[in-house]
């Protein structure tokens, strides 16, 4: 046990070597990963060096500095640029299936399983009939 902990601490050591960036910047960074760079191919604005990505990063940093909440910033982005820039689709009617179906499968599936295991029916017959047994004996006689 002790050895495990020690090993873990050693493994973790490189992580201790840095201090996290300021909270605001971290929040902005997280938002960057939710926004698509429209000039690039499927990249978010966090890792893109396109000019437009830089502009949007600046915009979001300013909004964060102005104390706006994540939800507000997302709403602003949607107003300005539409659905296309949001890597995190909105919770809206048209996205109901997207957000709803996977959890529904889990809930519905568990319910169905519980009902199924409650409802017991006869188990399968795992025995050969007499006729079958006789044919088998005949067949295997000369193996």
């Amino acid at each position: 046990m002790k050895r495990l902990l020690l090993a873990f601490l050693l493994l973790a050591a490189p992580m201790a070597a840095y201090a996290g960036p300021a909270a605001d910047e971290a929040r902005a960074q997280k938002l960057f990963t939710e926004v698509r760079c429209v000039a690039c191919q499927g990249q978010d604005i966090a890792d893109s060096d396109a000019a437009i990505a830089g502009d949007m990063r600046r915009e979001i940093r300013q909004a964060v500095a102005a104390g706006r909440s994540d939800a507000d910033i997302r709403a602003d982005l949607y107003r300005h640029y539409g659905d296309y820039v949001l890597f995190r689709p909105r919770f809206s009617g048209s996205n109901l299936l997207l957000w709803g179906v996977p959890p529904l499968i889990v809930i519905g599936g568990i319910a169905a399983l519980l009902i199924m295991t409650r409802r017991r029916s006869e188990t399968r017959a795992y025995a050969l009939s007499e006729a079958e047994q006789k044919r088998l004996d005949d067949l295997t006689k000369n193996i």
Partner: peptide, 8 residues
């Protein structure tokens, strides 16, 4: 046009 990315 819409996008689905890592946050989803």
């Amino acid at each position: 046009a819409m996008s689905v990315g890592a946050p989803y």
